[in-house]
Amino acid sequence: MALKNFKLQILSRAKIEVDEAAYYYESKNKGLGKLFYLEFKSYSKTLTNIPFFEEKYNIVRTLPLKKFPYTIHFTVDENEKLVSIQAVTSNYQDPNTTRIKL
């Protein structure tokens, strides 16, 4: 099955979470924040080509990063060919305090 490229939308709260994580890693080791951002960007690009990863919470799908303990939470609208990144959460974050409110 040939897939057409999907458009990518990153919600404001997900952008904030990426920025916060990158800032945290950069504060720990110079250049590490940039590596986090580049990995997130690479995985986001993957979602525009292959968005059908594990459906975890009702309609929310997840894609864990490989080098960092974070997971991308996103939805897919097949009709509109749109992937919406809802949140980027730490795997150590308490799920009761996450910003995800769907």
Rank of each mutant, 00 (worst) to 15 (best):
A14L: 04
S90Y: 11
N29P: 00
E54S: 12
S27C: 02
F53E: 06
Q93N: 11
P69A: 07
Y24I: 00
K34T: 09
K34C: 01
Y23A: 12
F53M: 03
L65G: 01
N79Y: 08
N29W: 05
E20W: 00
Y57D: 07
I16K: 12
K56C: 12
K81N: 10
L63H: 09
V88I: 14
L3S: 11
V76C: 10
L32G: 03
N29Q: 14
K15C: 08
I100A: 01
R99L: 14
L8Q: 06
L65R: 04
F40W: 10
K30H: 10
L63M: 13
F40Y: 09
R13E: 09
P64M: 01
Y57E: 07
S44F: 06
E20P: 01
I85Y: 05
T75S: 12
L38R: 15
N29A: 09
N49K: 15
N96V: 07
F6A: 05
K56T: 14
Q93F: 10
E80G: 05
D94N: 15
S90P: 08
R61W: 07
F6N: 03
V18H: 02
L8V: 10
K56D: 07
Y57C: 03
E55H: 03
F68M: 04
F36K: 02
R61N: 11
D19F: 03
G33R: 02
A2S: 10
E80A: 15
L63E: 04
E80V: 12
K28E: 08
K15L: 12
A21W: 01
K34H: 05
F52H: 13
L82R: 10
E17V: 01
K28Q: 11
A22V: 00
T46Y: 09
I100K: 05
A21P: 01
E80W: 06
V88H: 01
V76G: 08
K15A: 06
I72A: 02
F40K: 00
I72M: 09
Q9I: 08
R99T: 12
A14I: 02
I50N: 15
F68A: 01
S27H: 04
E17T: 00
V18F: 01
L63Y: 13
N29C: 03
F6E: 06
I72R: 01
K7L: 09
L102E: 13
L35M: 11
L63C: 05
N5A: 13
E17L: 00
T46V: 13
L32H: 03
F6D: 06
N91C: 02
Y70N: 02
F36C: 01
H73V: 00
Y25Q: 03
D19I: 00
N5Q: 12
F74A: 07
I100C: 03
N91M: 09
T89Q: 08
E20M: 06
E39K: 08
I72P: 02
K28L: 13
A87F: 04
G31L: 09
I59F: 10
S84D: 03
L3Y: 10
N91G: 09
E39C: 11
